[in-house]
Design a protein around this nucleic acid. Sequence first.
DNA 1: ATTTATAATTAGAATAATTCTAGATTAGCA
DNA 2: TGCTAATCTAGAATTATTCTAATTATAAAT
Lengths: 160, 160
Amino acid sequence: MRASRKAPLGRSPPSVSSSPPETETLLRLLKEKNVRASPQRSALIRALVGHKEEHPTAEDLFLDLRRRGEEVSLATVYNTLELLRQTGAVSELGFPSGPTRLDLNLTPHANLVCTACGRISDLPLDRLSEISQQIRGSSGFQVQRLRFDVYGLCSNCRAD
Amino acid sequence: MRASRKAPLGRSPPSVSSSPPETETLLRLLKEKNVRASPQRSALIRALVGHKEEHPTAEDLFLDLRRRGEEVSLATVYNTLELLRQTGAVSELGFPSGPTRLDLNLTPHANLVCTACGRISDLPLDRLSEISQQIRGSSGFQVQRLRFDVYGLCSNCRAD
DNA sequence: ATTTATAATTAGAATAATTCTAGATTAGCA
DNA sequence: TGCTAATCTAGAATTATTCTAATTATAAAT
């Protein structure tokens, strides 16, 4: 069993053939915390990295794993995501309605959240780090992490 | 009843003696939507405006109203907050854990969220609107609203 | 290899926050 | 005054997440 399908040259939208560097990074971060890279955790990390552009929910990942035969319990999905969050490699975006979605992009960026289709896309924004510096200086607030959401209509959903 | 304490020149932290302009604004916005300013809705709006600096939760407001004898059901609290959200006068901050908190500040600002004590304070940030302009221009994303959270340690909780 | 101790996984129960439902109340108006 | 629509409400239902306690897997030591 496992995911030892021979992968007949499969190269589709996300594409997780061998193992993107990000996967390795996350596994390494867990190792540094002295937690094992169990098959379930590895599978979850692969799913997460493979779908990071979609900012998946815990349930999305759970269902994705189940679909490809890598059965991981929902509890383990939540537990592992919490471990990853603690390493700082992953952050969670809570919204006033609907489930928490994952964000694997640690560089300063905006989350462009389309209020019509719900899609979230990342937009790199270097200026955020300047602002962060400025806040540290002026208000005596010791910055750890940023979240910048921009709500509006994406180019697809825009009417005009 | 009501908040008709004579307010002996009271000018304390929040200070809600007669009726701050914001209260009027919110009531007017509802009126424009052709919804009545019922006693329950007015009471809720007063509570919200009076506690906006604390970024209260729906339950905070519910309990606050109950404490001062203005009994409004929790369902009505949620319903009214949803009405206010629709007017755009109020926004809701969802977090990956814990309840949604309210934000009555519509000018561009950062939410300084202390990861130790949980307090949220607003910091005006004009540069956010520039950035918003820039996004509109470069990415074709039609911006409606911003949310900028800065997580870290507030000056009280900082160890150093 | 076997034992042992610890870590990890799991199903399902429990909780927390919010939304829904359907009946009672209230307000505006003919 | 009565009619209609809006509003309010308690409690049920739903959703997302966390907790619990029992099982299984792993690595280390023998």
